[in-house]
Structures are given as structure tokens and as C-alpha cells.
């Protein structure tokens, strides 16, 4: 209906204490308070979360897909940047 008059918000949900907030989707709302409530109703109906962040989509600045080649391809042949060349002692778990 008048959906286009309400700004778009991106929703981030923390599923458990200690984990990061993860982007789960977007929704329309008139302001931040409504966005948090809408996020609760749309994205946490099945016990998905313990915390909600919302950010108006216009505040998110993204890299340009047209620049993907110069942005990301140069990293492709620089395997030495991965820490896999170090010997990890057996006593160190979860690396």
C-alpha cells in the first residue's frame, strides 16, 4: 500500500549471548522504534534471537560491484597472507 513512503531498514539479530549480530533481512518502518518492533514480529517468531539491531538502509554504504575486480581479485594469489604456514603446537585446540 503506502509501503514506499516508509524507509527501509536492515535487521541484525543476535541468536545467542556471545555470538555476533547477523544480518537477517530488511523491512519497512516509519522510525527506529517501529523498526525494532517490526523486526521482533517478522524475524524472531521462532526463537531466533535475544537482541535486535536495526539500521536504516541508507546509512549502509556498500562497495561497488563494478569495482569487484580491483577490490578483490588481487587477494586471490596471496596465499602467504593466510596463517596456514605456521606450525601449530598440538596443545592448541580450536584453531
Amino acid at each position: 500500500m503506502n509501503n514506499s513512503e516508509w524507509p527501509l531498514w536492515e535487521v541484525f539479530i543476535r541468536s545467542k549471548q556471545g555470538l555476533d549480530h547477523k544480518h537477517v533481512g530488511s523491512l519497512h518502518a516509519a522510525d527506529a522504534a517501529m523498526a525494532v518492533q517490526n523486526a521482533r514480529d517478522v524475524y524472531t517468531r521462532r526463537l531466533e534471537g535475544v537482541s535486535i539491531w536495526v539500521v536504516e538502509s541508507k546509512h549502509i554504504h556498500a562497495s561497488n560491484p563494478d569495482e569487484a575486480a580491483e577490490f578483490f581479485d588481487p587477494a586471490a594469489d596471496k596465499v602467504y597472507r593466510h596463517p596456514t604456514f605456521y606450525d601449530v603446537p598440538d596443545s592448541i585446540k580450536h584453531m
Binding site: 500500500m1 503506502n2 509501503n3 516508509w6 523491512l27 519497512h28 518502518a29 518492533q37 517490526n38 514480529d41 517478522v42 517468531r45
Partner: peptide, 12 residues
């Protein structure tokens, strides 16, 4: 519902 978000809120 007037918008999708409120349609869900009402159903909840």
C-alpha cells in the same frame, strides 16, 4: 494487513 510487517504482527 496494511503492510506485511503489521500483517505478521496481527497474526502473531
Amino acid at each position: 494487513g496494511p503492510v506485511l510487517e503489521q500483517d505478521l504482527a496481527l497474526a502473531n
